[in-house]
């Protein structure tokens, strides 16, 4: 079973994404911010990271920067943000994000972006 880490400080967002992903058969864990996510990733790496940009202490950019500097580095990551401008997408890509989603995210949309990054065919 593929493991996904959801990083978001909003509990409702974590629960919503968790529920969608669990229904689709993934194992899900949660982190409140980038630092907690790094702790968890170092303990046992994940197959995919769903990264909210605005988290306290260490934000999504900081998380990706640190993650990409660790030996576990190349795991795919999707950045999620309320900001929809092209500039924001570019910034995320430059930070090492493989994909970018604008909030609020629809269930089918989330899965359509998650599956290809896990090497699965999107249905």
């Amino acid at each position: 079973m593929k493991r996904i880490l959801i990083i978001d400080d909003a509990a409702t967002v974590r629960l919503y994404h968790r529920q969608i992903l669990e229904k689709a058969g993934y194992l899900v864990e949660e982190a409140f911010n980038g630092l907690e996510a790094l702790e968890k990733a170092l303990q046992a790496p994940f197959d995919l990271y769903l990264v909210d940009i605005n988290t306290p202490k260490l934000d999504g950019f900081g998380f990706l920067r640190e993650l990409r500097s660790q030996p576990i580095t190349q795991t795919p990551a999707i950045m999620i943000s309320t900001m929809a401008e092209e500039r924001d997408r570019q910034q995320a890509a430059a930070a090492g994000a493989n994909d970018y989603l604008v909030k609020p995210v629809r269930p089918e949309q989330l899965l359509a972006h998650v599956r290809p990054l896990l090497g699965e065919v999107s249905t």
């Binding site: 982190a31 911010n33 630092l35 907690e36 702790e39 640190e66």
Partner: peptide
């Protein structure tokens, strides 16, 4: 206790016995 609730000044390091 988790530094993740305190400050971002430090870097996480994983060693075999502890983080």
């Amino acid at each position: 206790e988790s530094m993740s609730r305190m400050s971002s000044l430090f870097r996480v390091r994983k060693f075999p016995d502890a983080i």
